[in-house]
């Protein structure tokens, strides 16, 4: 992590390591900034879950076979009406369309594969870069 979460500015770019405290601190940075901008508990829940799932996808899937020490980058911008988060890993990327739908009956008991579903459910917009190693997601404050 590049700085303590207590300083949490409205925008930042953080190198997140694959360990609990580093991931917690990165999520807290976004959430502390969002709290300052008056986002509700439900909004904070949504954004934290989406950021967590995107970071974990980067570590578990994006960095599969790569050194565990590689960080994932989280860039965020918190404004009064929107929260934009970009998570980029250093892996070869993936094709989002290839991820099986975990809500189908044949997949419902699979142990993994729900992160992207939750990100899409809770964020207003989700875009992947062509390579598939970067996801940009935007949360819009409900009216």
């Amino acid at each position: 992590m590049s700085r303590a979460s207590t300083q949490a500015p409205d925008s930042d770019r953080l190198a997140v390591c694959n360990d609990g405290p580093s991931i917690d601190a990165a999520e807290a940075a976004v959430i502390l900034a969002a709290e300052r901008h008056g986002y509700t508990k439900a909004s904070l829940f949504a954004v934290r879950l989406a950021v967590h799932e995107a970071l974990m996808n980067g570590f578990k899937h994006g960095h599969r076979g790569l050194p565990a020490s590689l960080p994932v980058t989280l860039s965020y911008k918190v404004k009064d009406r929107t929260i934009e988060c970009t998570i980029e890993d250093q892996g070869p990327g993936f094709t989002p369309q290839d991820v099986p739908d975990p809500t189908l009956e044949e997949n419902i008991e699979r142990g993994s594969g729900r992160g992207l579903l939750l990100i899409r459910a809770y964020m207003s917009r989700v875009e992947h870069n062509t390579k598939g190693n970067r996801v940009t997601m935007v949360y819009e404050k409900p009216d």
Binding site: F45, H52, E53, G111, R114, G115
Partner: peptide, 17 residues
Amino acid sequence: VEHLSSAALGALIAVNN
């Protein structure tokens, strides 16, 4: 409990099985 990740859901599925 206030937050739960997809990994926790995966663990619950394993428990159920």
